[in-house]
Design a binder for these strands. Structure first.
Lengths: 232, 232
DNA sequence: GCCATGCCTTATGTATACACTCAAGCACCC
DNA sequence: GGGTGCTTGAGTGTATACATAAGGCATGGC
């Protein structure tokens, strides 16, 4: 029984990653039935590793038992998104406070500069080709916070939230204007962390998440499943 | 693949529950090696359900991979306890705020009265026989908060924290004076929720958790593994 | 037409056998 | 004595066969 810590990729890991990616992208939509025989054949493995992957996905909330015989992809409606953002806000405010107290100022100074550059570049985030780079920058920010907080329990809880969040982003429509504004918001947060201002970092995070939620919900209300990129 | 939702108890569930209980009580201490062949024989099941139970325990942070071949019970030292309490504080303050806004005042009024009675009874919590009833009251409070918040993601995160907390309590020494004080603290929190005072509920929770952490840490520093009951 | 009961099929739960890999021990060389 | 390489046994990863139970369908009765 090995959660993968070496370079070797097991069938369990491959199945888990494949199913998670399909759930996040919407290829496996909310309510989709995951039957063992069908899924193991589709993924080219036996039922045993498939079952182990499903146990892990269930523990993380991505799949649920509809009945003793039916496992389905967990739902993600507006209420779920609001609930996820409520938890996200609690955890991220806690995390940026901790990062402001314990983090390496130089790392967050550099991140703040990168976010400022992303917010002011021309054409910058108006060009869809720049979005992948921007999401990589957000991932780098999340990783830096995760390192700075020095709290494995909190880091794990954040990872779960962020993994669910990928799915939410897929539901929302691309919105370049929002991306530009969010880059500015991120620059402010990273700057506050760099200066050790925990209160400013937490409040700026609150503002950022509120704006992100509004943007996502209006995008979803405006269209019933146009999924390209999300709006963080 | 079924997380148990019917009355039937599977071998996976039995193994998961048995191992979790042993980890929580310290019967399986931090660092204990969990070898599949040995554990499946000990629990009287085959390796397949044992592996599934271990996947779930790993996802929840109770066991970790020490190497590709060695699964061990996760550690829980002072740093871990501080980290757990930091996350606990973030989540529980979020939860009591939500409960104050969304909960049924009558439920929390009754809980506040029960906590007050526990704090003032004579001999009450000075008598060890009363402790099980008190912990049942705390479980009832936790369940009421979990129902009141109407946020599955947050409820799930709280459940994980509380499951880890059982283990911490086992490490700490019984402290009847602390129990009496904590009953008063709980009465104040439940009362604030009942009155819809989210800020008071959150701050009282912060005070309560700070006192609980101090009590636990001093208990652990005073003795290196006297495990009877904890001190919430 | 609706409801209850029984039977059969299929999906899940589990045991077991086989394949693969890790790590410990031993032998040899410098 | 220390380092390196090889071998072997044991532990994990997976496939498959068997056991069990859930659910759907058909039939009969009211």
């Amino acid at each position: 029984m090995a959660v993968n810590t070496s370079g070797r990729t097991t069938a369990v890991d491959r199945a888990y990653s494949a199913l998670l990616a399909e759930i996040q992208t919407g290829a496996l939509p909310a309510g989709a039935v995951l039957a063992e025989v069908e899924q193991s054949a589709r993924l080219g493995i036996s039922r045993t590793p498939l079952r182990e992957a499903l146990v892990r996905l269930a523990a993380e909330g991505f799949v649920v038992q509809q009945s003793p015989r039916v496992t389905v992809v967990a739902g993600i409606d507006e209420k779920d998104i609001r609930s996820l953002f409520e938890l996200r806000r609690g955890l991220e405010e806690l995390a940026v406070r901790a990062a402001a107290e314990r983090g390496d100022a130089a790392v967050f100074t550099a991140l703040a500069e990168s976010f400022s550059a992303a917010a002011t570049a021309n054409p910058g985030l108006a060009d869809p080709a720049a979005h992948a780079g921007y999401y990589a920058l957000i991932s780098a920010y999340d990783a830096a916070v995760g390192d700075a907080i020095r709290n494995d329990y909190l880091a794990s809880a954040l990872r779960t939230v962020h993994t669910h969040l990928v799915r939410v982003r897929q539901l929302a429509k691309d919105n370049p204007e929002r991306l530009v504004v969010s880059a500015g918001e991120h620059a402010l947060i990273a700057g506050a962390i760099a200066e050790g201002d925990a209160a400013l970092a937490a409040h700026a995070t609150h503002v950022h998440l509120h704006n992100a939620l509004i943007s996502i919900l209006s995008s979803i209300a405006g269209s019933s499943q146009t999924s390209t990129e999300g709006t963080p």
